[in-house]
Nucleic acid binder design. Sequence first.
RNA 1: GGGCUCAUAGCUCAGUUGGUUAGAGCGUUACAUUGACAUUGUAAAGGUCAGAGGUUCGACUCCUCUUGAGCCCACCA
Length: 718
Amino acid sequence: MDKVYDHKKVEERIYAEWEKNGYFKPEVNPDGRSYSIILPPPNANAPLHFGHAMYVIEDILIRYQRMKGAAALWLPGADHAGFETQFVFEKHLANEGKSRFDYDRETLYQMIWDFVQENRGGMESQLRKLGFSLDWSRMKFTLDPDIISIVYRTFRRLYDDGLVYRAKRLVNYCTYDGTSFSDLEVVYEERKNPLYYIKYGPLTLATTRPETKFGDTAVAVHPDDKRYKKYIGQEIEIKTVLGKAKIKVIADDSVDPEFGTGVVKITPAHDFNDFEVGQRHNLKIRQVIGFDGKMNEHAGKFAGLYVKQARKAVVEEMQKKGLIEKIDDNYIHRIGLCYKCKNVIEPLPREQWFVKMEPLARPAIDAVRKGKIEVHPKSFEKIYFQFLENIRDWNISRQIVWGIRIPAWFCEKCLNWTVTDGITPEKCLKCESKTIAQDPDTFDTWFSSAQWPFATLLTQSSSKSKIKNQKSKIENSLDYERFYPTTVMETGYDILRWWVARMVIVGIYATGKVPFENVVLHGLVKDPYGKKMSKSKGNVVNPIEVVEQYGADAVRFALVYGTALGNDQALSYAKLQGMRNFTNKLWNIGRFIEMNRVSSIQYRVSSIEELKKIAKRKNDKEWVAKVDELTNQLTNNLDNYQFNLAAERLYEFIWHEFADKYIEDVKIRIDKDSYLILTTLYLILLRLLHPFMPFITEELCRKLGAKDSIMVSSWPAK
RNA sequence: GGGCUCAUAGCUCAGUUGGUUAGAGCGUUACAUUGACAUUGUAAAGGUCAGAGGUUCGACUCCUCUUGAGCCCACCA
């Protein structure tokens, strides 16, 4: 054996052997009880970040359960990552002097598909380098046809149950490019624009957008503002450029009494904040700017003018009529611009699909209240409940092409929607007209990933009965029968609301069962200075580079050691080095045993019970008892998701008890019996350590003559 | 503005349901060492557990307030 442990000689070879031997499949324990975890699918075409390395927690659980005899399934997947991927692709296009507007929808989709396929495989090989014992034969992609068909079906059911409706919602719209943009695609810039103080009957308010006044459906003041208290709830009469009008005065907390005059005009159709206020007060949404960027019929004689022209004309008219009190020319504010053409982004109302959440959220709240789902650490339950108890309807429409297109067709004749399981209908279901067009929007990525636990299990090709596309009834697969509900959903706490809560909601709705029995939440890995890693800050550390430097086992151990579950940690090179040193210590214990090996001894004894009978010396007996106690502690820790305590205990015991004391003791009195006990105890320790450090424990077992892989050995306690 | 988390040794962090002298790693100091391992060993120094008050026989642990740090959500007309 080498004097120093070299992970580079070990890890790749061992992983390949494990995979070849099929040890990652639940079938290695065909009669075991079911234990399952679905891997939160990483972005298919992006490299892993350090947060993904935290999935080591899932590997620890899976390896532990597998050793305990469970039919343990850890199912991998890849996410198409909706607009993040489309955004990256478009940057790529921009480098070639092209943009998404140069292609039709189908071509663009195909190009992104090819782009993702080219980059795929990267994150899979990185997960392998971390030693993750994922069952690759069951890998799923969020855009696999069978997954898509399940997503269609769920939408269809929601629609048929009356839980989906159309409603207006503002989008960032560029009237020049003729398309809407995600928040990511809006660039903000500080601009100096005139702030107009306009007379509204008895009130005066400040605005930068006088031309949108035709869309005003209220004016608002702060509820505690004494100046205006008497107007709240009243309809005031105002003089406008189009004649006289009446408008309601409402009170809303969002109004800043310090800004301008403390009075705000509310234009729900053309301002994100006003839209929210409008929702709260049930205001009408009156659109006055069209998707062509021109004023519409509500603007009276200003109709047909572009926004900029209209603003100028409206201001001139107001000045003539004495409706402008003053103009502040030094007002600076941030406005949204189209990242592509730099024109001002116009918030415009657009009809989109919404899911009614309140009735769906109730069973999800109950599931946790009644203990059908346990959250670890428990403190995160608060966030879960808070989200679900104040839930708002879910907008599931996204104006991008990279995703699952919504299976809904609009009839131009009778104005009704036809929703299907994904099959293109020949005619409108209501009036049989053939002039129907599919909704150009795609589903919010979270809408499909909310179905991930049951969708991945239902669509396994190894299953007996496959999904039949044309029927609306979902036939259960073998894997679904066996592994659903899954045992654990483990992910970062930052997506508890967006993903975990929605999986519970949609899972219960679609299957009648909770999607998982336990939620385990880990914290964030930050940079060495405790700052959040982000591309824009340039402080992202590639986990695979760290693995190559310190070894996967050391990295894995460092991530769970010394940080309680759910707490953030700063990446620490000192800690990584310490853990690398620990792997070396472990290696040298093995080396010591190997060097002193007595050839006549067969290291076969494996149970602690047997050892208790064999140990005769008082010292040996004590050490057998200590390992027995350690085993029980670890079992208890792992059953309670206390990974840090388990890791700390192992480190402490192996190094400062077993090596520093027991080996030093045995060294002096070298005799056969003691070596047998020593070696056997060591092999037990390696098994206890295996879920945390799979590679080195495997290699050491082999060096000490084990014939079978440590992966198919059993956990030393029940 | 609403909510959450954190504050323990110089640094990074542990500390099950409140229970004797509060732990680890790194760092520091002294010594040892061609011996499984210098990616080592033995030993030492170092903390009024952010502050104040309360509950209790007993509080790092539970409650309230204050201060400081970070995160999430909502928003800047």
